[in-house]
Amino acid sequence: MLYFIIFIALLVFVGYVFYKMNSKKAERFPSHWHSILLEEVKFYKNLDLKEQRRFQDRMMQFLSEVYIDSVDVELVELDKILIAASAVIPVFAFKEWYYPTVSGIILYPDNFNEDFEFSHKSKSRRIAGVVGTGRLEGKMILSKKALYHGFKNSNDKRNTAIHEFVHLIDKMDDKIDGVPEILLENSYAIPWLKLVHDEMEAINKDKSDIRAYGGTKQSEFFAVASEYFFENPKLMKRKHPELYKMMASCFRVKV
C-alpha cells in the first residue's frame, strides 16, 4: 500500500507540474474580497494575516484552474468567492494542491433530482451537490441555495460545497470509497476503517449526532464527517474525540 500511495503522490505531482505549465496565470486577488471573506467564511476569519494572504493566493490559483458557470441563475461575485473558499479549506494545510479530477463547476439555483431537473415542478429534488461521472466527468454541480446555506449556518454541521470537494480528494486514487489514501498515512488505514464502521453503526442506531446520510456509505461518511470537522470542530472534538483526531491528522490541521 505504501508503494501505491507513493505512486499516487508522484502522479498528482507530475499532473500538477504539467497543469501549472499549461494553465493560465492566476489573477490578482481583488482587495474588496477580504472584507467579504471575513464576513462570510469563518475559517478565513480565524487565520492570521499571513495565512489569510496565503488563502487568497490559493483561491485565485483555483479560480485560474477551473471555470465556473451557472444554469438559470445569475453568476455573481459571491458565488465564485464561496466556491473557491470551499475548494481551499480542506486542502489549505497542503502547500501545493491541484484538483486533477475537476475542470468546471456548474451552479444551479436550487436542489435538483437525478435527472438534473431543478424546477419546482420537478419531483424528488433532494440533491444539493454532485461530482459528475460519465458525460459529466470532470464537472461538479452545486445548488446555489445549498452553497450559501453552508456558510450561513455552522450549527447544522453541513456544507455542501466542502462535502463535494472532499469527494474529489477521495477520488484522487481513482475511486470514491471513503478511504482517502492520499491523506492517510499507511499505518492509519486500518484504524480509520474501524473508526468509520463504528461511527456508521452508531449513526444507523440513532446514537450519533453525525448526519444520517453519513451512515449510508463509507464514502459519504468521510464527506459528512469532513463537513462536521470544518463547520463545528469544537463540538466534534468534544463528542467524537477519536474521529476529530483522525480528521485533524488527515487534513493536517487543527481547526
Rank of each mutant, 00 (worst) to 15 (best):
M1I: 08
I6A: 06
A9G: 01
V14N: 12
Y19G: 01
M21W: 14
M21R: 10
N22Y: 06
K24Q: 12
E27C: 07
R28G: 05
P30V: 02
H32N: 11
W33Q: 10
L38W: 04
K42G: 04
Y44K: 11
K50T: 15
K50H: 11
K50S: 13
Q52R: 14
R54W: 09
F55H: 08
Q56Y: 02
D57C: 02
R58Q: 14
Q61V: 04
L63Q: 06
I68L: 07
S70F: 06
V71E: 15
D72V: 07
E74K: 15
A85H: 03
A87Q: 05
V88D: 08
P90F: 07
V91T: 15
F92G: 03
A93I: 07
A93D: 10
Y98C: 02
I106A: 04
D110M: 04
N111R: 11
F112P: 07
F116I: 00
F118S: 01
S119R: 13
S122D: 10
K123A: 08
K123W: 02
R125I: 00
R126L: 04
I127Q: 05
V130I: 14
V131W: 06
R135Y: 03
R135T: 12
L136P: 00
G138M: 05
K139A: 06
M140K: 04
Y148A: 02
F151P: 02
S154D: 10
N155L: 07
N155H: 08
N159A: 06
T160Y: 00
E164V: 07
F165C: 08
L168Q: 13
K171C: 01
K171N: 10
M172K: 00
D173G: 07
I176F: 00
G178H: 04
G178S: 10
P180L: 08
L183R: 02
L183P: 15
L184P: 12
E185Y: 03
E185L: 03
N186F: 12
N186M: 07
Y188D: 15
K194M: 05
E199D: 10
A202R: 06
I203V: 13
N204D: 03
N204C: 03
D206H: 14
I210M: 11
G215M: 03
Q218Y: 03
E227D: 13
Y228N: 09
F229Y: 14
K234Q: 14
K234A: 14
M236I: 05
M236R: 00
M236S: 08
K237D: 07
E242N: 09
K245H: 09
M246E: 10
A248W: 01
K254D: 14
